[in-house]
Amino acid sequence: MNTAVRPRTGPTDRGSGTRLNSDNSTRSRFHLSAAARSLGLRALAVGGFLLLWWAVARAEIWPPVILPPPHAVWEQAVATTTEGFSGSTLPEHLWASMRRILTGSGYGTAGGILLGLLIGLVPALRVMLGPLISFVRALPPLAYLSLLVIWFGINEEPKIWLLIIASLPPVAVATADAVRNVGPDYLHAARSLGARSWRLPLWIVLPHALPEVITGVRIAVGVAYTSVVAAETVNGLPGIGGMIREAQRFNQTDIVILGLFVIGLSGLLIDGILQRIDRILAPWRGRT
């Protein structure tokens, strides 16, 4: 007579399961407390900055035209959102700048990835184009804005081209460096498994270089944000840079500071989205 052997679930097994649940619960509470602590520190930093700003403005060390109080900037935010400034509301100014930034950095990113792949994979192109990319990267945007205005006029074309030229070199350099760091063992293994040579850049090289490419994209978007005010100094209305330029002409410091805050906060939002994309597309970053 066969007797089935039943698995024994003694006190040790039950204790092990209890410990696992306890460890998971402890880890979850630790992550929650770390997130809450991080959020609290950020709120404390922002509150401290606003308090210091209010105290300095209250002491009237400088006149309001130099340093307006925080409530003046807030009032201008409400007024420009509801009533507008220079013919457009604050959301319309922001959307015009965001459209230029996303278009320019989008084209610059696509061109930078393609150029970086070519430079990283073809030594002859690396020798010819590498110094040119470094030369363009060293140029400040205002240095070639006047030339772009002569070439393309004062409409949207010079603004988009300025942002393309400003954002392309960081992506190209990051991509080329990442491509050169791809180990030859990966390429040999792919060839031994039957991969064609023309498929290696898309199947092996680019996925391996993806974390560095995304870092280059983040840098490129940051460069585009720093260049948008320069791009919108020429016929930049509507646009945050144009709004800042127009307010500067009439010494409206509160609107200038409002524009800086809007650019900074929208830049943080875009960078947070890019970091999220980085975690999704390259989850192995920082892990062994």
Score class of each variant (00 low, 15 high):
W74Y: 12
S86F: 08
W95Y: 08
R137Y: 11
I204C: 13
E156V: 08
D177H: 13
A166E: 07
V182Y: 06
I113A: 03
L90M: 14
S88R: 09
A124F: 13
G111Y: 00
V173K: 00
W203T: 08
L168I: 02
I113G: 01
G104S: 07
P91Y: 09
I165W: 02
A96W: 02
P123Q: 10
A172E: 02
L163I: 14
I133N: 04
E157K: 10
P207K: 10
R180S: 11
G106P: 04
G84I: 08
V136M: 03
I160P: 00
W161P: 04
R126E: 10
L163H: 04
P70R: 08
D177V: 06
A195Q: 10
R137C: 02
S134G: 09
I119V: 12
V136E: 03
L187E: 11
S146N: 14
Y107L: 13
V65M: 15
P64L: 12
V182N: 03
A172V: 06
G108N: 00
T103C: 07
E92H: 07
I101C: 03
A124C: 07
L193Y: 08
P207D: 07
G116K: 00
L168N: 00
N181K: 15
P140I: 03
L187V: 15
I154G: 06
L139D: 06
I113E: 00
Y107V: 15
E83D: 11
L148H: 01
K159I: 07
P140Q: 08
Y107R: 04
V73Y: 11
I66L: 14
L206E: 05
H71L: 15
R100M: 13
V205Y: 06
A189D: 10
N181W: 11
I160A: 07
H71M: 08
P69N: 09
G104F: 03
G111N: 09
K159R: 15
L90W: 01
P169E: 01
L142E: 11
G183C: 13
P170T: 04
F85G: 02
A72D: 13
I113V: 13
P91E: 13
S97I: 01
E75R: 12
A209D: 01
L94I: 10
A138D: 03
F85D: 02
E83H: 15
G84T: 12
V182T: 10
P158G: 09
S146Y: 11
L148M: 06
E75N: 14
I101H: 02
L145Y: 05
P68Y: 06
L168M: 12
A178M: 02
G120C: 04
L118K: 05
S167Y: 01
V65L: 15
V122G: 08
L193A: 14
I101P: 01
P184K: 14
L163P: 01
S197F: 05
A72R: 12
L200I: 15
A209P: 01
A172G: 06
G183Q: 14
G87P: 04
A77N: 12
S167C: 09
P140T: 12
V171G: 03
I133W: 01
